[in-house]
């Protein structure tokens, strides 16, 4: 398995589906997830020397994918379509609480939503998320805690006020209590 191409192909088979889902969910506005996924593995080839130092191959690939998506976003900088989360129609008969949760997630600050997705959807550990986002583990914990607390309060209040929709996805930075350990 010393051949980088064989190693990458093996990683592609193992982590490709998760990476594709991550790119489609979190970076849909940049381009097609399939293109970003292929760019991810081409970029990964260029930085194979960092694989040995990574927490895990999975975390390393997510970090590469995230950087590829951010670079693509910087290059394009064109009018962005609505994110898929908002553009997608609600499936029929879906639980109202689930719909409320989606709206609440869309209104989270980007940094909180990103950590929430990496943990709950991609099942990355705190350590892996810290490597992907290049932040301390304490910051990951803090952001996840803030995200869950906000969602819990929103759902507990049971208040999906019509006026809340005006703001759209919240792009503010994490304003409270990121702990840098």
């Amino acid at each position: 398995m010393s051949d980088p191409t064989s190693l990458l192909e093996s990683l592609y088979r193992e982590h490709g589906p998760a990476l594709l889902g991550y790119l489609a969910r979190a970076h849909a506005e940049v381009g097609t997830a399939e293109d970003l996924l292929q760019d991810t593995f081409v970029q990964a080839l260029m930085h194979m020397d960092r694989l040995a130092r990574a927490v895990s191959p999975r975390a390393w690939l997510f970090a590469v994918a995230r950087n590829v998506a951010i670079s693509a976003l910087r290059r394009r900088r064109r009018p962005q379509p609505l994110p898929e989360q908002l553009a997608a129609p609600e499936p029929d008969g879906e639980d109202e609480r689930l719909a409320a949760m989606r709206r609440a997630i869309d209104r989270l600050p980007d940094v909180h939503r990103e950590v929430l997705g990496l943990r709950l959807a991609e099942k990355l550990s705190y350590t892996e998320i810290a490597e992907v986002l290049e932040v301390p583990i304490g910051t990951v914990r803090s952001r996840l805690h803030n995200a869950l607390s906000r969602l819990r309060e929103t759902l507990s209040a049971g208040a999906e006020q019509p006026g809340d929709e005006a703001g759209g996805p919240n792009t503010e930075r994490a304003e409270e209590g990121d702990h840098n350990e």
Partner: peptide, 25 residues
């Protein structure tokens, strides 16, 4: 809350994995 959030985030239907970009690599 965590369970519901996980369900909300996982609604994206699974996509078909494109072929490995062997030629580009």
């Amino acid at each position: 809350t965590a369970d519901l959030a996980a369900r909300a985030l996982a609604r994206e239907p699974a996509r078909e994995l494109p072929p490995f970009p062997a030629e580009r690599i």
